[in-house]
Design a protein around this nucleic acid. Structure first.
Lengths: 224, 224
DNA sequence: TCAAAAGTGTTAGATTTACACCCATGA
DNA sequence: TCATGGGTGTAAATCTAACACTTTTGA
């Protein structure tokens, strides 16, 4: 009998809080559970961690199944492991949040998985402890965006400053002053103005900006 | 065959990063592993999560085994789950950091568990991915202390401002200006000056302060 | 008497916040 | 022509950071 075998094993799953930004609102992807227990309840999308994959890999795989996208920005939210959190069996779940650009996401895949984009301010009752997971993910994401430019991951590769501002407002839950916001952005050399103009949002048209990751890395490397 | 049983189970453990503050240095409790695999390597103290306990409970229990103390301040650092992180078997581990006052800790218990207080700036090679765990715990703790008064948990219930400053310096890894530090502390109504004087640190003696958790809760409730 | 730690305010600079008007365009 | 969103600068207030000397006392 080994040192390990005197202890019991448990199921471990991953659950994904997938953030998207659409119609000026921060949204997450949730769906009605297709299986028991909890069939029909609103739930995050998740999956079990298998024996031969790391937990980050399990989360990536799950996100890939769902979106067809690789290399999605993703961070661990934490492990959730109350004894009775899952109504069926003892399952410990590790939550991850991910940021995707809604437009990159094939809507057919969304439908196949029976998922909906739901405004984070109008989330229905969720299965198990998923509400807590979402709350913690939002908090972490809010903290993250304060210190690192992750917002662009929720936007198309070209975006207007107004879109960016709406995104920050949605994440922070408060309105920002336009002039102060644009001043702050101007100080970030990794947000580049292009000569392109978007006319979908206004008659006059607004300059499109892009995130320059090279400039970002250089800037941050200097800080080290 | 249930929905669960098509998936495989894994062992789940908890590992504790126990911070203490002594001799003006931030330290953690680590010991030589007493079992295989990895016997003799420096390691965090941990234990397996059993079937009938939540992960937070498992961490509390582990901390209690080790210290004889209940209600230790503790936060989850995150789940670590690379496939091959444990050289023996597949084990997913959830790391927790804890803050204790070294003086509350019975040194006999420390010795029984073969543990040592080691300066966080002089940590030897550690077993498995424990180094990463410690790094993340330090980062989180540093962030925490910036926003919440957790520092007093590493100190005796009465402490001098110099002790408190040394603690902040040890956590942040940089020296602080004495006058600016004391100004900041003065603004915190929940750090109360007593009339007691500590003469162990200097000839002149320094006022002892205490943390008033009631004042802290009131203050933070107002902010909500 | 002197070494060692305790205690105490002020000022310059940097950062943050508040605030209002003109521009370009398509309908 | 006018309604709509795009774009721009300044000043006050707040916060942060730098800085030096006096006090007390035990050895």
């Amino acid at each position: 009998m080994t040192y390990y075998s005197q202890h019991s094993k448990v199921w471990v799953s991953v659950d994904c809080i997938i953030f998207g930004f659409d119609e000026g609102k921060l949204k997450i992807l949730i769906g009605r559970r297709q299986m028991d227990p909890g069939r029909g309840e609103w739930s995050l999308y998740g999956g079990f961690v298998s024996a031969d994959e790391g937990i980050d890999e399990a989360a990536s795989r799950t996100l890939y199944e769902l979106t067809g996208l690789r290399n999605i920005f993703m961070r661990q939210v934490g492990a959730f492991g109350s004894v009775d959190r899952d109504p069926g069996e003892r399952v410990i779940s590790i939550a991850y949040y991910a940021l995707i650009n809604v437009k990159d996401y094939d809507d057919r895949l969304r439908q196949e998985h029976h998922l909906e984009w739901v405004d984070v301010n109008a989330i229905p009752l969720l299965y198990s402890d998923h509400k807590e997971m979402v709350a913690k993910a939002r908090k972490m994401m809010k903290e993250k965006i304060k210190h690192e430019p992750v917002g662009f991951r929720l936007l198309p590769s070209l975006f207007t400053l107004t879109q960016l501002q709406r995104l920050y407002e949605a994440v922070n839950g408060e309105e920002l002053d336009k002039r102060n916001f644009r001043k702050r952005i101007k100080d970030m050399d990794f947000i580049e103005k292009t000569e392109l103009i978007d006319k979908t949002g206004s008659k006059r048209g607004a300059y499109l900006y892009r995130f320059n990751s090279k400039a970002y890395n250089e800037e941050t490397n200097f800080r080290l």
